[in-house]
Design a protein around this nucleic acid. Structure first.
Lengths: 194, 194
DNA sequence: GTATAATTAGGATCAGGTGCTAGGAGCTCA
DNA sequence: TGAGCTCCTAGCACCTGATCCTAATTATAC
């Protein structure tokens, strides 16, 4: 049974190996495990692992999704926007947004949604967050859908006071008060941020 | 010159097309533009664009980086950690962290680094952000390296007051005061967040 | 109408695979 | 000892999405 054990072990290692670095060819993997390329192919077949090019494509697609979802200027989907007045966006939370050891969504995703919305609602070429006060009222579980609503409370000069409330199924999970500064595109001296 | 113009136009379109969806083969692109595959190849050659498989690989590598960098529990690299007392982390900002229209880093990345650090410094199984006050003192440009320092100011029961200051080349760009709540792993009733 | 630029076509070759067939090594069991 | 089994290796034909190279055709400019 030493043979079979070694096979099982190799396949487990193979999984770990590909998780660490998915962009390895069968050739490289074969060398790494001291077996023939065919053996690696059989292993992949048994484990249902796709070939390197597919793995690359899958990852590439993920990257695009991540890019458009998490790294877009507005995090979450914009559902409503009345410039200078109010806005609403929805964010469906994903496992990648949670802590590694539990299913609680990490605060900066909730903040990111609220902050993006606060910046978006201000009617200006460039708007940056100057300061904020946040309250995380209740923890959010991975999979829950967060609806954030932003309202411009007041405006003095280029300073906008924006209030954001985020809810999950109607229950408030987060509130934040943002001071957003509108800045002319031509003004390069950054004194504030978003 | 209509031909040459059409060529220039096609190459511009090609760039935009591939930016939108990089996972297209020459074949598909040829059909899309109504030209032969060879023409697309020549265009790619002139524009210095890599083949589809390379594009996929590049994206895949990015995805891995994004995964490990932005979606890890601690954003930025931990440079120092004394549990319950202080911590320091560094974050080199990337183009993907900036706004689409300028090179200013968006606030939630700065917050994410600070928030992660504040949570990490608290010596507890699970620590969640309950509330925070933030000040974005100065805008950060893409490429700048942010060093965040967190100090536990006080502790009352399971509530920790953590102060975070983020600097770029010694200059303060962000300050935040976080109230972090430590929670026993066994307590499933989420009343606070991180 | 001819020079020049742009496009198309064809063939050889490559990487990194799939799918299939076949053979040998190593172990178990009777 | 040999049959039966799993596991590994090997070889060959084929596929996709490319490469590089040469040659021919078409469009446009002068």
């Amino acid at each position: 049974m030493a043979r079979r054990l070694s096979k099982e072990l190799r396949q487990k290692e193979l999984l770990r190996e590909l998780e660490m670095d998915p962009l390895q060819t069968d050739e490289a993997l074969a060398q790494r495990f001291g077996v023939s390329v065919q053996t690696i192919r059989l292993d992949r077949l048994e484990l249902g692992l796709p070939e390197m090019r597919e793995r690359a494509r899958d990852l590439a697609e993920q990257a695009q999704q991540i890019r458009s979802m998490l790294i877009s200027d507005l995090i979450g989907e914009l559902e409503h926007l009345e410039l200078g007045k109010s806005a609403r966006s929805a964010l469906t939370t994903e496992p990648s947004m949670g802590f590694a050891r539990n299913t609680i969504v990490r605060g900066h995703y909730i903040f990111a949604q609220a902050n993006s919305l606060a910046v978006a609602v201000v009617d200006a070429e460039t708007a940056l967050t100057a300061s904020a006060r946040l309250r995380f009222v209740r923890s959010v579980r991975v999979g829950e859908r967060i609806v954030a609503e932003a309202n411009v409370v007041s405006q003095k000069g280029n300073k906008h006071l924006v209030r954001v409330v985020s809810r999950v199924r109607g229950e408030t999970v987060f509130t934040g008060t943002f001071i957003i500064v509108a800045r002319a595109e031509s003004d390069p001296t950054g004194r504030e941020r978003a």
